[in-house]
Amino acid sequence: MQVPAPFEYARATTVDEAVALMGRFGDTARLIAGGHSLLPMMKLRLANFDYLIDINDLHGELGFIAVEPGVVRIGALTRHRELLDSAELAGVFPIFRDAERVIADPVVRNRGTLGGSLCQADPSEDLSAVCTTLDASCVIRGPLGTRTVSMAEFHRGPYETAVADGEILTEVRFPVRERGGSAYAKVERRAGDWAVVSAGSAVWLDDGGRIADARVGLAAVGPNTTGIPEISATLRGEEPSEQVFTRAGEIAARSCEPATDQRGSAEYKRHLAAELTVRTLRTAVARAARGEA
């Protein structure tokens, strides 16, 4: 069996302690929570660190889903399973339940965390696409205090984030608006596989049932999970219809940059970007109209 190279194990019991340890060890250290991306890379010796700082004890502090007026705050150590099981979260953002059903597998979901998913910054990662769709912002804590960045700023490229050495992602915030609906869809070669393409949609309707605002986030079609502003611009003010969704899908298809790989051809992925954009918009609008959020 593959095994990681030697390192020192340390455990943080508070966020302050984690920040202090990260400050002390700098880029020779890495935080570990679920470990499902980090440990396999270390076993392959593609990544080696002198220190691993176990932050699972921070679950009391950073494992939470707080649905508040105008905002949902989710702690970075909230596990996939908690996101999937939360009826309250699904009530506001059903996209989470859609997505969590198709992320990895149930046993991995028992361990993997929201923060770990975002910090891995894999372009195929589903929660990143969800966060992009929902216009989330990320709260990052470091020795100098706390700062908040948008998803667009958070992901700087494949496997690269705004979290600097000595910093820790603590929380992700999602603005809540009236008459919203959201949905997520993923095409995968097999359950538990990374996405061939995934799409998330969030839609907000006005009093007349027109689209007040909409956002689409895609995974696995470019260097990052991508939000597509042109889709939002196109949909705003429109009466929801298949024609409008199709137009949005066409924009998605031409706005993304998929690559041909084992999961599929670039052409197919473009097609899926369109198809899944249409499907998720359709569901999101229906949910918004039914008041399901």
Binding site: V187, R189, V196, R263, G264, S265, Y268, K269, H271
Partner: peptide, 8 residues
């Protein structure tokens, strides 16, 4: 017969 190959 992966989805991509079926689509092709």
């Amino acid at each position: 017969l992966t989805p991509s190959r079926v689509w092709d």
